[in-house]
């Protein structure tokens, strides 16, 4: 019987070496590329007619666009407009990877801590650079809450600093843990179906059906959470207020 963790193994399909770095094409790479191709299909091929009255696929693309555009507008404001393509890409990439992970025999790209951490670290570093670029050293006032007595500041400033540096970890672990837990759960119950066989296997099978629906919701929700938290961090860097 397979381990529930086996599904997360990276399998090298094509050994590649790029300037001494292992750049092998893996099952993870495959599903990343599939996600990119499908997203391109929806957003470019779906928009090819640019119809005033949209068809189905164009509606999907427009709804996704307006969803993230509204999120950026509400949470970052006008200053966030130039970061909108990045937030949209982030959301769409995570969403497609999450949802594609639910396809049987596929691989869940976002169930890998290194992938989610790389994205979260990129957001963290990028936001910090934007903050210092826009406000200089004044950006450090982000760690000093306004209208707080000096004595409390001694306590609050370290907390603010810690909570700031914990952002990439919370952001990446939230997504990774959700994907890991969901897929492990599905696999474990899948194992129960096999173990209980045709007589008792229906109960875990029914559970899997229901749980897959929940996982779909989580797939969307975690992409949304990742995007909206990126917006909130960006808002801190752009507008520098609590």
């Amino acid at each position: 019987m397979h381990s529930p963790m086996e599904q997360f193994e990276i399998k090298r399909l094509l050994h590649l070496n790029l300037f001494g770095i292992d750049a092998s094409f893996t099952n993870s790479s495959t599903w990343m590329i599939i996600a990119v191709i499908l997203a391109t299909a929806v957003f470019v091929w779906g928009m090819r007619q640019r119809a005033l009255v949209p068809g189905r696929l164009q509606s999907v693309a427009e709804v996704g666009y307006e969803f993230i555009a509204g999120m950026v507008r509400d949470n970052v404001g006008d200053g966030g407009k130039k970061y909108f393509p990045f937030i949209l890409t982030l959301f769409i990439f995570i969403l497609f990877c999450n949802v594609l992970g639910l396809v049987p025999y596929s691989f869940t790209v976002t169930s890998q801590i290194v992938v989610t951490f790389a994205m979260a670290a990129f957001v963290f570093v990028g936001v910090t650079i934007i903050g210092f670029a826009r406000h200089g050293l004044h950006f450090l006032s982000l760690f000093v809450p306004k209208g707080v007595p000096f004595v409390l500041l001694l306590l609050l400033v370290p907390i603010e600093i810690i909570s700031y540096f914990i952002r990439p970890f919370s952001l990446s672990i939230r997504l990774f843990a959700n994907m890991l837990a969901g897929h492990t759960m599905l696999k474990v119950f899948g194992g129960f179906v096999v173990m209980l066989g045709i007589i008792g296997g229906w109960a875990p099978l029914a559970f899997i059906v229901v749980f897959t629906g929940l996982e779909l919701l989580i797939a969307f929700l975690q992409a949304y959470v990742f995007a909206i938290l990126t917006c909130l961090y960006l808002n801190d860097a752009v507008h520098l207020h609590h």
């Binding site: 990276i10 094409f25 790479s29 957003f43 470019v44 928009m47 890409t89 992938v115």
Partner: peptide, 27 residues
């Protein structure tokens, strides 16, 4: 880690270019 990060960078950059150059202006 290394192959995942390399291909994440490639895939993400590709999607970013598609989105910012093609999809966003079109929409």
């Amino acid at each position: 880690f290394a192959p995942q990060l390399v291909w994440l960078a490639i895939a993400f950059l590709a999607l970013y270019l598609v989105m910012s150059r093609l999809a966003v202006p079109a929409i």
